[in-house]
Design a protein around this nucleic acid. Structure first.
Lengths: 195, 195
DNA sequence: CATTGCATATTTGCAGTGTAAATATAACTA
DNA sequence: TAGTTATATTTACACTGCAAATATGCAATG
């Protein structure tokens, strides 16, 4: 129909999917989840309003991809400073501090990752990223506490316990639910009895 | 201009605010937060699309009122089965089970109550409801664990710890993040080491 | 009782949103 | 080169929150 209005800009972006994800994360962390729309992402990247539809089935698809990216990064945070052969308690401490650090660095994304019904929880890529992330958590939960039952039950409860505390702490912290006076530099590793 | 189209229905609803809140909760729990809109609430109650504006400054106002209602109800759940003079451990158990039961009965509302930036966290009514709710939590967190420091620091960390575990457990549970095979009827009181 | 004031509800209008469908463009492939 | 496919645009529509003007009826006041 009409010619390309700006010949300097190619018709095809080349890497639109990644560019949209980056724009989405910026919008999400900068202005909150309510400021995140497919159209704003498109505008930020400089493409037409409906271009994102070619890369994400719908908005949930974009959010799901964001969440998967988040889990992958959280895994890196957790493994940072976690060295093979180190003392188990030190490994656990490193993983927990990494977990919380990720949540503090990406509070809006963290909320999205643990939200109900906003991401397609059965997405294969997401499931993979989640699994990879919680391999570390399951690892460092070994030998924790004094639970009873079969070895499998003990392991399951150790994981449920550790994940519950660290997730609860991370979410309450990033949602500003802890009074600053009470905090006084308290870290996740300071509130685990017998740690 | 034009006469009332249905004389059987009064021009003024009479109790629109409460009716809207009820409709909002139904929509929220039934079809998820994305199905919740001011217009749908209005339609469910049978008033004009913009009638809610007279009772809530904006959508955040409605969500804030919903959250405040939630905290008030959660306080009731926690105090249910918590009798004066009872053993502290039993009181703690009752409060925790009540906390989780509320989250299970109102998963979408629970998520809203702990979300970032969706509710006006400085709303006076909300703050009051939150405070009343966590009086009980602070109460039953006394004598928990083996923390060190000044009495104030110990109390603060006891509260942070208990709130973190129970919140993390409730959220992960209602977000279906615990594998059913691992659960096997495990309750919050089963994953607290030394409980 | 009449009238005035106020809380409540409606109507109208607008910008922003997700998404479907048809079309256009360019890259790849045989 | 010709045909196919992936990628991007345009157009269209229903839905949303919200602002502004208007309508309605109750309650208090003269």
């Amino acid at each position: 129909m009409s010619a390309n209005p700006d010949p300097s800009k190619p018709y095809h972006h080349g890497n639109l999917r990644d560019a949209l994800l980056t724009a989405a994360r910026d919008l999400l962390e900068a202005d909150g989840h309510s400021a995140l729309s497919l159209r704003k992402c498109a505008e930020a990247v400089g493409v037409s309003a409906t271009a994102p539809q070619n890369h994400f089935q719908n908005k949930a698809g974009l959010l799901t991809a964001l969440a998967a990216q988040g889990y992958a990064e959280m895994a890196v945070y957790m493994r940072r400073g976690l060295h093979e052969g180190a003392d188990r308690k030190l490994r656990r401490e490193a993983a927990l501090l990494g977990y919380v650090a990720f949540a503090e660095d990406n509070p809006a994304l963290y909320e999205l990752m643990f939200s109900r019904n906003r991401v397609s929880s059965q997405d294969p890529d997401l499931l993979l990223a989640v699994r990879d992330c919680f391999v570390t958590l399951a690892d460092v939960s070994q030998g924790l506490g004094d639970f009873s039952g079969t070895p499998e039950q003990i392991a399951a409860r150790q994981q449920m316990y550790l994940w519950s505390v660290v997730h609860g702490y991370a979410q309450l912290l990033t949602a500003n639910r802890f009074k600053k006076d009470d905090m006084q530099g308290t870290r996740i590793t300071d509130i685990l009895p017998g740690f």
